[in-house]
């Protein structure tokens, strides 16, 4: 039933697809890290006209499927003259989707800093920027690193959704192979195996990181 020769022959193609998957994952993650931070700051803002729409945006994005958002970006944006390649649309959609989750992570990280730290900084007459740079961020960041690692893995596992907007990543590669050879067993199973190995190894990495951070 299982054809090893066929499996080996398609492996280079699948690895090519994996390359796109990884590129999309890391670009989207970088995008989410930055946008998520901006969203978190904007949400904390005391300017209501800024914080309220941002809050609504976060709630909306979190409550709707990534797939629907991707379709919206890929098919609706062009109507307004913004034509995107599948990769750009995918990175944008995936990144935006997860930026709302990361903004919550940042928020909880910042909220976990005791009020005394802000007060101490004020008592020492630190500027607002100085307080953030020297007091808040150094304390808020280490505990959220493992959480962000888990979101990175989550994004990696969500990249197959990008195949729906015709990005030829790992799953789409397998589908194309399947359509051409009429053999779905090996390509799709191999995609599963590749995902399992990569996400299992990286989740062990996150656990290790968490342990080390806790020891400090």
């Amino acid at each position: 039933m299982w054809d090893w020769e066929f499996t080996i022959s398609i492996l280079p193609l699948l690895l090519e697809g994996l390359k796109i998957t990884l590129i999309a994952t890391f670009l989207a993650f970088g995008f989410a890290v930055v946008i998520g931070f901006l969203l978190a700051i904007a949400r904390r803002s005391s300017v209501k006209i800024l914080s309220l729409p941002v809050k609504a945006f976060i709630e909306f994005v979190r409550s709707t499927p990534l797939l629907a958002q991707l379709f919206f970006i890929f098919y609706v944006f062009p109507k307004f003259g913004l034509v995107l390649t599948p990769l750009v649309a995918g990175v944008l959609g995936l990144g935006l989707h997860y930026s709302t989750y990361l903004s919550e992570v940042y928020r909880s990280g910042i909220d976990s800093i005791p009020r005394g730290q802000w007060e101490a900084a004020k008592a020492l007459n630190f500027s607002k920027a100085r307080t953030w740079i020297s007091i808040i961020i150094p304390q808020a960041v280490p505990p959220i690193i493992p959480v962000m690692g888990n979101y990175l893995i989550g994004m990696f596992k969500d990249t197959p959704v990008l195949s729906a907007i015709t990005l030829v990543e790992l799953l789409q590669t397998a589908k194309i192979i399947g359509a051409q050879s009429f053999r779905y067993l090996e390509p799709i199973t191999m995609v599963g195996v590749i995902f399992l190995i990569l996400s299992y190894v990286s989740s062990l990495g996150v656990q290790w990181l968490e342990l080390r951070l806790n020891q400090r």
Binding site: K157, P160, G192, L196, Y200
Partner: peptide
């Protein structure tokens, strides 16, 4: 470990 969509396809 193996991505929901991949499982659906499988």
């Amino acid at each position: 470990g193996t991505s929901l969509l991949v499982q659906l396809f499988w």
